[in-house]
Design a protein around this nucleic acid. Structure first.
Lengths: 205, 205
DNA sequence: TTTATATTGTTATTTATTTAACAATTAATT
DNA sequence: AATTAATTGTTAAATAAATAACAATATAAA
């Protein structure tokens, strides 16, 4: 089953908002209610749900719990995936604190830095290792995904290390565009670009 | 002149990479060289450049300096735009340190928080004000753009305050989807969604 | 000088994504 | 029991974005 990228993004958001609805005691939800939560159209919601092969019940809507579970089956693996953060600068720290505990199937289990003053201890309960130990720890700790928060200049080298260590997914927060072998999935996010996009549109109005 | 959103994003990245090329003494650059920097195709580069109405010279490529300036004319305003950060948590701090000084026409001039222990002093040379002072400071400091880094629960309220204070562009890092009046440009980024996207694709491979 | 090569600018095609349209049908109302 | 309203699931149409195709031409090579 092929799912469009944009659908995956929305599924992630559906799930998080559905979890909130569920915690409020809601057992069923209509497409227009989900749409309202995300400020998109009901058609889009229904189409996405169709694509993942789920069926709601007419005039009752979708079973919140069942939909959450199905999205989980699509996004997560059964055992979960371990994640490491490369670089314990401000961004690395923010990401660790922000993500820890948010998604049970995506655990941040380690952080790596080259600065000896930072390594060898815990940050927010996450062990901080020397970057030299990457390959070993990726194996022993079964790490699948790496998040790059190192500065521009060291991004490519860091990415190569991750790839060589056997990682299969990378989220790159450095503004250095990376070039990786096809078997590694790469997602890039550039804060400056986001802000400049806002600047452009703000100016236009 | 209407420019696609994706083109704006790439223009931001062209510029930053061109600035690096320029600092290395490069005066002219071919479309395939720019493409290589960003790992996209030369056609896309040429098409974007066509859209902004710039002309290179055949067999010499594009004038680096001129292209940088033209992109600046598109993205930036002449006087620059002032930016504030809402919330001085880990993410707020990371953003301040990461963005400060990066783009001369986008200055972070203030930060706002509700925690009295954080307000009334500087963080990384940026004054931290009480959120109560928002409206006043937006006016006196001429702030055009707000970056939201507060937690989910307080995001909507924070956004409303920004809008009421007269801000016209918002970059939202909270995972709460916002609903704003049409005259305010909104850009949203959700770290968890990014990571879950990586998880999905990593799993698929 | 002529020919070949590299490179731009632009139009046409393809692919991806969103939006619209609407049939089917369940539940509620009369 | 018949009618109306609400809601899903799905196909069709529209829009947006990326890629391919190629003409034009400046420079380098023969």
């Amino acid at each position: 089953m092929h799912l469009p990228d944009k659908t995956i993004e929305r599924l992630s958001q559906y799930r998080r908002n559905l979890l909130i609805s569920l915690s409020k005691g809601k057992t069923h939800i209509f497409s227009h209610e989900i749409a309202e939560l995300l400020h998109i159209t009901p058609v889009q919601v229904r189409r996405d749900i169709m694509l993942i092969g789920y069926n709601g019940t007419l005039r009752k809507g979708y079973d919140v719990k069942a939909l959450i579970d199905l999205i989980g089956n699509i996004i997560d693996t059964e055992e979960g995936q371990n994640v490491c953060v490369m670089g314990l600068g401000n961004l690395g720290k923010a990401i660790i604190k922000y993500l820890c505990g948010k998604r049970p199937k995506l655990k941040i289990v380690a952080c790596f830095d080259t600065n000896k003053e930072k390594t060898g201890r815990l940050y927010a309960d996450i062990p901080v290792f020397d970057a030299e130990e990457l390959t070993e720890k990726v194996k022993t700790m079964n790490i699948a995904i790496g998040i790059i928060t190192v500065p521009f200049e060291r991004a490519s080298e860091t990415a190569n290390r991750l790839v060589n260590a056997g990682i299969t997914g990378i989220l790159n927060f450095s503004s250095k565009p990376l070039n990786l072998p096809g078997h590694v999935y790469l997602e890039e996010y550039d804060m400056i670009t986001s802000l400049e996009k806002v600047a452009y549109h703000t100016k236009e109005k």
